[in-house]
Amino acid sequence: MIAQSFQYESPGTLAEAISMLHKYGEEAKILSGGHSLIPMMKLRLATPEWLIDINGIPGLAHIKKEGAVIKIGALTTEAEIEHSDLLKKHFPLFADVTKLIADPQVRNVATIGGNLAHGDAANDHPAVMLALNATVIATGSGGERSIPIDEFFHGFYMTALQHGEILTEIQIPVPPAGTGSAYHKLERKVGDYATAGVAVQLTLDSKGVCKAAGIGLTNVNPIPLRASRSEKALTGKPITDKTIAEAAKYAAEDCSPSSDLRGSEEYKRAMVAVLVKRMINKAAERARG
């Protein structure tokens, strides 16, 4: 498996990279971790004429807290996310999700920016970011712009990123005390794309009433899906078997999985319901401490 020939650039600054994107036009692709792009190029499903390697650009790999926001640089690898104490403290679901993404070697290279910018509903971070109400920062020739995660995914491999823009950072609001999160996906074997995956973040008050809920679904919809009805079914109510069942039912109804080798549409809907239930329970348990 060998890619078609291309030209390679490795700019040292973001401005340089953006100007190259403008210069080379649609035939240029950004290379970050490359673990989605290079496999597609080896199969010649992607045949860019230019690769612009942004790995040499400083300032794009970080995990830091600034005020009420956690900022994750686009070039942060899955392994760095997996081992970040800061993320572990605020978002236990990152430990859940990174363990289930591909394998350790891939996680050493694959980046969170690439995972999101690929626009693939089979990837795991889209659902996570939906659950966490993240904001995507894109940088273009006009500077930075913020894209709420709900406006980021447009279609199969399509995102709100314009040509000439580079995803540079993900910002996640630091949740209040009493918040818990969890992620799980069913996979045919370790490292597989999800048969179905569910990310949940819940904030509970001292009485156990759900103040806020975020639920994202992996690989059961053409574009990454927020389970909005499920979130509403929980918000403002105590977490009970009844509200959980309701949330699970809505998520199963609202997604649109396709039948494939991983299972039938019906199976996947049923699995969404099971996982929504399990992840709500797990997130609630974590929220309660």
Binding site: L186, R188, T195, R262, G263, Y267, A270
Partner: peptide
């Protein structure tokens, strides 16, 4: 025998 077949 996969999870899907068992579920089915």
């Amino acid at each position: 025998i996969t999870p899907f077949k068992v579920w089915k």
